[in-house]
Design a protein around this nucleic acid. Structure first.
Lengths: 134, 134
DNA sequence: CAGGATCCTAGTCGATACTG
DNA sequence: CAGTATCGACTAGGATCCTG
């Protein structure tokens, strides 16, 4: 017990590194951005506020659970606001915040890169899959 | 069998939508970029080629499996090259490609946003968790 | 040194049913 | 209408052992 085994040591380093990564702002943002539904919700709200059911119709791929979960996360991060109108039935509007809007150019940049270079990537994949070494 | 149940219909729409998303270049790129290790590998190679063991030391958080898997994926996408030198023992160098380099500005943009706005996000989270409605 | 193959766990996602 | 709660399927990721 004087020293740690090599495996334990590596595990320790890994944990430390991962803890460090978890704190890295870049990766926090990436974790948010990489969420499939986040981008779609943000994009959907770019044109103006929407109600829950509108969002659910705009993004048919998302289950109720995922949609709600995504909305909560974004609200928590201050990227959108949730406004409840206590009528009968209830009405809830979601609106993107100024902070959320600053994210849109980044999404756009990603989209642009993708549209510009996706062909190259696809060709590279095809070559790789063909077993093309030279 | 004349009509589909509501559940089946929704499921169908979901599938279609997800198939559409899978084809969307932006989401393909996002799927790549969002991979924790991809960013790190790309960043590590930005300064010059590295060997497998170098990478593994630079990124202690990645397991062998994840590292290899990530490298293969990036090679397949044409974002880096893998060069084997058949000496004893074998030597393998990984180098970022021109295409891969075009991705770096985007990573940088993300990093910049994160560093600029992460504070706001953290404050928003704290307020949310405090149950701060107004 | 660089990785392939295998097993296994933990978290994610979706379907379903119920509530104010 | 706008959710919440729960359960099961799936799979990404990590540990481990083994090879050229």
């Amino acid at each position: 017990m004087a020293t740690l085994s090599a495996a334990q040591l590596r595990e320790h380093q890994r944990d430390e590194y991962n803890a460090f990564l978890a704190q890295c702002p870049g990766h926090q943002l990436l974790a948010t951005l990489s969420d499939k539904w986040v981008t779609l919700v943000l994009a959907a709200l770019a044109d103006g506020p929407l109600r829950y059911s509108d969002l659910s119709r705009t993004i048919p791929g998302a289950s109720q659970k995922m949609l709600t979960q995504t909305l909560r996360k974004l609200e928590r991060d201050g990227l959108l606001t949730r406004t409840v109108t206590p009528s009968v039935p209830v009405r809830v509007d979601y609106e993107i915040t100024a902070l959320g809007r600053t994210l849109l150019p980044i999404q756009q940049a990603i989209k642009n890169w993708a549209e510009t270079h996706i062909e190259q990537v696809h060709r590279a994949r095809a070559a790789y899959d063909r077993g093309d070494a030279g």
